[in-house]
């Protein structure tokens, strides 16, 4: 005797995981989870907020959108990608995390990340510390001159800003020119001894990009394009990212 067909109730509601799948190549493989747990077993964020990568993905797959959006766990996952590396199905959980970060209203995202992103949008440096291109130039020139004098073997060492046609363009973490300028020097020395033709860019020199961490796509793109355009305008061939 044939059993009655079981029909699942209602039309499937649009879920957050579907929106993310639309954004990712091959949907980030988000529907391929075997629930093996390889992702979670080596994840340093496992256990924080009573969450782990597998649980997070399962919750998204089950449509527990409100719970996921409420959780701070996406801000505790560093998107290091180890879970993708060990996953037999190459599921892109970090991209799920990133896109869920972007679904929280901008002003409700972590204040420190938000503030660092906004600082970077203040001027052309794109520095998370808000340092102006003028201040950067002043510090670099001042430190260079000091070292050329104090260590005469390096009297010809250069740390150019906006040198047209340099082969390499280097960015710089903002912490150094602002709080520990001497830490910039060892790298300059190595470049000098190696005979590298390099320059900093007056625009987009700030190496960090907190707008990316904030999941503010527009601002992230602005910062990246500012740095890339400067490299193009100067005719540099290779971008050296120190971050």
């Amino acid at each position: 005797m044939a059993q009655e067909v079981i029909t699942l109730g209602g039309k499937k509601k649009s879920m957050l995981i579907d929106k993310v799948k639309e954004l990712l190549p091959d949907g980030g493989n988000l529907n391929l989870c075997l629930t093996c747990g390889a992702c979670s077993s080596g994840c340093p964020a496992t256990g924080l907020e009573d969450m782990d990568p597998r649980k997070f993905l399962r919750m998204a797959a089950l449509g527990l959108d409100d719970e996921i959006l409420k959780s701070d766990w996406p801000w505790m996952c560093t998107m290091c990608q180890r879970c993708v590396y060990v996953c037999p199905m190459k599921i892109d959980i970090p991209q799920l995390v990133y896109n869920i970060r972007s679904m929280r209203p901008r002003e409700e995202r972590p204040k420190g990340i938000l503030g660092s992103c906004d600082m970077a949008l203040r001027n052309d440096s794109c520095s998370a510390m808000g340092t102006s291109p003028e201040d950067f130039k002043f510090v670099v020139e001042d430190v260079l001159e000091e070292y050329q004098e104090a260590q005469p073997e390096f009297k010809d060492m250069q740390a150019p800003i906006d040198k047209q046609g340099a082969e390499f363009i280097l960015n710089q973490n903002s912490r150094e020119p602002v709080t520990e300028p001497d830490e910039m020097v060892p790298l300059w020395k190595i470049m000098h001894l190696a005979g590298v033709d390099w320059t900093y860019g007056n625009k987009g020199w700030g190496g960090e990009n907190y707008c990316m961490f904030l999941a503010d796509n527009e601002a992230w793109e602005h910062i990246t394009r500012t740095a890339a355009k400067q490299a193009d305008d100067l005719g540099c061939k290779i971008f050296l990212n120190t971050e």
């Binding site: 080596g42 340093p44 701070d72 801000w75 505790m76 996952c77 560093t78 998107m79 290091c80 180890r82 590396y85 060990v86 972590p110 204040k111 420190g112 990340i113 503030g115 660092s116 907190y210 961490f213 904030l214």
Partner: peptide, 18 residues
Amino acid sequence: RSNNYCCGGGGGFLQAGL
């Protein structure tokens, strides 16, 4: 190598106030 563990400084965690 790629099996290594992340230190936890990246992804904005350092500035996230957590």
